[in-house]
Design a protein around this nucleic acid. Structure first.
Lengths: 207, 207
DNA sequence: TCGTGTTTTAATAGATTTATTAAATGTATT
DNA sequence: AATACATTTAATAAATCTATTAAAACACGA
């Protein structure tokens, strides 16, 4: 069976650029580089995308929207707050684990050029607010019942994201400084999802 | 009283470079740029530091060592585990709050070029291990007494760092996406130190 | 003030990068 | 085959950046 599918050069360029941008960032990747690795003339990139920036944005927005949409999914309130939080953490973790370069990529690029985010506000609409409001409502209700301590939904979300994302961003550094072996880190990653869930849920216990 | 102190041009260059590197990173800052802002000829930078890379390293290492040393301080075991953890989180938080650009800077630069970290292993010696071992010992002792649940010191440290650091790295983004006003964020930052302490300590409660 | 060493500049080589343009090639249609 | 259109290339302009070199300016003790 022949699995080769004839890709348009435009597609090849996008995919090559995606790989390179993820690996070395916007400023670390040249159009010459992309062209060489994609196997085409450098001018072709400009023919299709006009500028390096525009090509980058195609990829950056696609990736960021994909991830934010996953993240901002309003997991059903019907399962109960703690279960809902567990689901959110786990699905977020899985998503990153499947795309480990992603947190570093997005973080670096947004730090280097925060205005990239502004362009996305329109695309996301009020999903962020919807999630936060929905989560806050459920938290407040649970606080009434004495199930959890009071906390701002945004704080909670940020903590969840940071704990998940941090492992992958700092993975190589921790390994390096701590002088850890690969199997140590593997274990860390494997246990970390569980660990993060426990950490967050425990932290919500009322005093 | 005249507070003007005649700085050597070399010093001015270092300070200007520090400001620019922190703001726009290594690849976003040119020696021409530094020279213009420092008020000298561009060649002078190469006269003193030979290469842009070497100048960057002077600054990067100084900053990183300063912060890691603070972070890796083996806070006395004598105060008890929970108090020790509280102290570690708070002093770390304060340090970052006083240098809010720092986490993004280090994170970006290390992501862009992980080998920079290798150069530092020698300088840090076994401080990382000392801290981890000391912390782990105190945790294990406390676990015996039923005071906290079992946890790896490295996991705990990572969580502490991530929660603190994350706020400052993602500060502009959260503000942007969440459509938050300045005073909302201010409140967030102010309450966050306490929040992080609570979160970590609660998360250590035995089941 | 002369001479010596240090600091600073002007000029520029050399590399790289983005982007454009005009020409060449390819492909499908009548 | 001839036309028309899309794709791809070669060549190159223009900007920018790092680094070097040689000369100028400066500082200061003999």
């Amino acid at each position: 069976m022949n699995t080769d599918i004839k890709l348009s050069m435009e597609q090849v360029i996008v995919e090559t650029a995606e790989r390179l941008f993820l690996e070395k960032g916007f400023s670390g990747t040249s159009t010459t580089d992309i062209a060489r690795k994609a196997g085409c003339n450098q001018a072709l990139i400009h023919y299709y995308f006009r500028t390096k920036e525009k090509l980058f944005n195609v990829i950056f927005e696609k990736k960021l929207i994909f991830f934010l949409e996953q993240l901002l999914k309003v997991h059903s309130e019907s399962v109960g707050l703690k279960e809902r939080i567990r689901l959110m953490i786990e699905s977020h973790f899985d998503l990153i684990a499947a795309n480990p370069q992603f947190p570093g990529f997005i973080t670096s690029e947004l730090l280097a050029s925060p205005k990239r985010l502004t362009a996305l506000k329109g695309v996301l609409g009020d999903k962020p607010n919807l999630l936060i409001e929905s989560l806050q409502a459920q938290i407040d209700a649970e606080v009434q019942k004495g199930g959890v301590r009071p906390i701002r939904a945004l704080d909670l979300l940020l903590s969840m994201i940071m704990l998940n994302v941090g492992l992958f961003i700092y993975y190589p550094m921790i390994k390096n400084v701590g002088g850890l072996k690969d199997e140590d880190m593997k274990k860390s990653v494997e246990s970390r999802k569980k660990e993060n869930v426990i950490m967050i849920l425990n932290s919500l216990k009322p005093d």
